[in-house]
Design a protein around this nucleic acid. Structure first.
Lengths: 221, 221
DNA sequence: CAAAACCTTACGGTTATCCTCAACTACCAT
DNA sequence: ATGGTAGTTGAGGATAACCGTAAGGTTTTG
């Protein structure tokens, strides 16, 4: 079994829960970090001390606070660590349910497992650790299915941005000029309308207000 | 210090973290539940067995799954438990940051403490347990300030209903006919427009979409 | 009781959005 | 090159939302 593990997670309660669980598995050399930047420094130091981590368990989203961070998300951290120590095993452990992000996580960064937080998050995590230790991949069931079928509508950064600006009260015309100014393409009123329409169909929304209400409930924005 | 505590929290990792923390405080008689309905049954049984819980630590939001629940939120659970056992101490422990909901939680249900999950969630929780044990109230700092200044504007049932229907995707015309059918007055298009306008001014919203986004963030609907 | 204040309702003009059609571009495969 | 497909852009008319005004009603108040 793994001996040396780093847990990166901003919430201290989850951090403690995961640590306790790992200790129950007989893993005793555990380090923890609540900020991505701290985590990266620990990884670098561990390599320098010739005691590199074998496994990284990391959350994806981190609450921002007064400490400014170089790496503000799990993705950024994972990318940096993979560059520094390519052979390290990585388990993403997050509540994130945006397929697009998870897909890139696995394809681009070569993450070994993705575990959804939830009622049985710790159980899945335990299972994932075993699988990853035996060089297997693990995906929590609720996303494994969804990832297989490609039918899932690809919500891109563009759509998120569009929805965000709508929820900020901008009119379509204001969004057009905002996109223009920030070099976000496509920026024509017509295209914005069209993408908006796609989103409305996708989420079965009657109108823009309804759409924003729905995606807010889904936690997309 | 409290001896007998019930933790209600759907995510197993947090559940474990909180339990470990409480054990560190010397509390050993700890029960846990991942569903609100289970929690209520445990409370009832504890009373029957003449070993009632002294403290309830409960989350507010619970992921829905295949198990249908009578109590689907922390609020519903807390209300039911308070009716059953009025003297029990209650700490709400949640990521919830909607002031309106927290306000009703404290004023209506008499919750003893509200602790925000986060980087220092467990530390705040520990502190809250001590305060509550000494019959004091505790609110996590990030909400304590915000709660003090109260919103003067009287939001009535009518406005809530209006906002709800908007977030359900109804047009103003559809809302008019809905109000008509359900004997909600005033129901004319003109009045609906007017009240909507008031709300937009009150919440500094640019348009209806913006308004719904804002009140959803506030937890008003 | 009547003036004042407030609310509801109706109407018309303006603006924003919704919707369809059509032209244009980029990319891919035959 | 040719044709197919998909995405962007533009223009128009239809619909809904927005805004001010004014008439008629109810409640409050002197």
């Amino acid at each position: 079994m793994f001996k040396r593990v780093l847990i990166v997670e901003d919430m201290d309660d989850i951090n403690k829960g995961v640590r306790t669980e790992l200790e129950g598995l007989g893993i005793n050399d555990i380090d923890q970090a609540q900020y991505c930047d701290d985590a990266f420094l620990k990884v670098r130091k561990a390599i320098k001390d010739k005691k590199p981590y074998e496994l990284l368990i990391s959350d994806l989203s981190f609450k921002k606070d007064n400490r400014t961070q170089k790496y503000s998300s799990g993705e950024a951290l994972i990318e940096a660590i993979k560059n520094k120590q390519p052979e390290i095993k990585i388990i993403a452990y997050s509540i994130e349910d945006r397929f697009q992000r998870i897909r890139t996580l696995i394809n681009k960064f070569g993450v070994n497992a993705y575990v959804c937080k939830g009622r049985r998050g710790l159980k899945d995590l335990t299972y994932a650790i075993n699988e990853v230790y035996h060089n297997k991949q693990f995906l929590s069931p609720q996303i494994a299915n969804a990832l297989r079928k490609k039918t899932s509508f690809e919500i891109e950064e563009y759509h998120i941005e569009l929805l965000k600006q709508l929820s900020n009260g901008l009119s379509q015309e204001e969004i057009r000029s905002y996109f223009n100014k920030n070099n976000i393409a496509p920026s024509s009123l017509s295209s914005i309308e069209k993408h908006l329409n796609k989103l409305k169909i996708q989420f079965k929304a009657n109108n823009t207000t309804h759409l924003v209400a729905i995606v807010k409930d889904l936690g997309l924005i």
